[in-house]
Design a protein around this nucleic acid. Structure first.
Lengths: 230, 230
DNA sequence: CAAGAAAAGTGCGTGCACGCAAGTTTGCGT
DNA sequence: ACGCAAACTTGCGTGCACGCACTTTTCTTG
């Protein structure tokens, strides 16, 4: 409905983007990530370097996007696909966990590559911001027009939480540095599975979702037990 | 206590940083922001271009940092300075609003400059991430060791909310584009004062703070009326 | 189906970020 | 007071991001 026939223009565009993605990833895997110049990626994809640059603002983005692909749209539909009765908080949590967990075999070995370079790691973490717009849309849909503002904030918070979860998951406990007055952190969390990290990061936001949801439909109370562990 | 005498080394370093900040801002104000090359800033500050680059990762950062300065530390202390009895949510909100509102006359004219260039605008918005570590620290302090994880998520959410508030404040209603299924947004909010934008963006997070706070001190209920409008 | 408008691709030039390997300054132990 | 080690500065070189002007391709409309 939204895309009758995408048109040749758009198809070519996506094809080029895909080719660049693939080329970037493949070359990065073959040689090290540092041994891949933009020129190589462009050539492998059959476009000029300048064109490559119209698709990706940085070399890291190109490589990482091969893993990230169309996560944004997947998340949105995943939320919408949740049964109508569940709490909004649970719907979002489930959708997010599902999308970040259901990783093909190939992806996992790519993540190893990504963690080896700080620039790549950062670029990967930055992609969490991409889920914000679609999340805003679905949340806003459930909150109604009055909650548009709230929806944006909640979506952004979710993105932030996901980022944190990925951060502490990707980091096998580095030396103690920056933030505040924590110990080495060894006690805080033994760096469990990604699944757990995500749930734990999203849990604190649940009350905010509940409150927002309550403000729009004070009558129909969604069932609150499918995932509530308390 | 934390800084007996800072030592010559550190003082010089801060002096250089300050000089760069000031030079960058001054030059950007005199000519347009686009007419300032890194070379100029470095020369005006009396260091080599390469050294400039050891302090700032981008030209935009240097300019923006003149406005941002030590906001991070101010926020942390502002939260800590709040009366002990108030809800954590209120303490944070007040501290944040205060810090982003108490803007000198000079700052306001700088903000006008910043909004003129997208790159500067983005750099400015990115600085909201800097408040995250100090916020994490103070929040963690009030939540106790058990809530360290929660503290990080909440701090990140606050940072995200602030970013959103600043975004919609800096943008006098552009044409409708990206996100989801909203109208032109003219109805949603008439783009009130920054103060209001901040409060509105932070409000949805209050329930999350309350819940977190409740989990650590189920007994002593903080007074909940100083700012609660509902 | 033939222009003409709109959009994508391309070549070129400029300023920049950043690694590396010196040189220089500051701090500290003895 | 001296001198070594660590921190900061700097020059150089490389690859890159991106604006601009222009060509080529695709979409639209009469």
């Amino acid at each position: 409905m939204t895309t009758p026939p995408p048109g040749l223009r758009e198809r070519k565009k996506q094809a080029t983007r895909e080719a660049l993605r693939e080329a970037a990833l493949r070359l990065a895997m073959e040689r090290g990530p540092d041994q891949v110049r933009v020129e190589d990626i462009a050539e492998a994809a059959g476009v000029s370097p300048r064109t490559y640059n119209n698709y990706f603002a940085s070399r890291e983005q190109a490589i990482v996007s091969a893993v990230t692909a169309d996560r944004e749209s997947r998340i949105a539909t995943a939320v919408a696909a949740q049964p109508a009765g569940v709490r909004l908080a649970d719907a979002v949590t489930e959708a997010v966990v599902e999308q970040y967990t259901k990783t093909g075999e190939r992806k996992h070995e790519v993540l190893l590559l990504i963690t080896t370079r700080t620039a790549l790691r950062d670029a990967f973490l930055d992609t969490t911001a991409d889920i914000e717009p679609p999340l805003t849309a679905v949340i806003a849909e459930r909150l109604g027009d009055a909650g548009a503002h709230t929806a944006r904030v909640l979506a952004a918070s979710v993105a932030a939480a996901v980022r944190i979860a990925l951060e502490s998951w990707l980091r096998p406990a580095e030396g103690a540095e920056a933030a505040g007055s924590f110990g080495a952190g060894g006690l805080v969390v033994p760096s469990g599975s990604l699944r757990d990290q995500l749930r734990e990061a999203l849990a604190p936001l649940a009350p905010a979702f509940d409150a927002a949801e309550r403000r729009t439909q004070p009558s129909s109370q969604p069932n609150g037990h499918p995932l509530d562990k308390r």
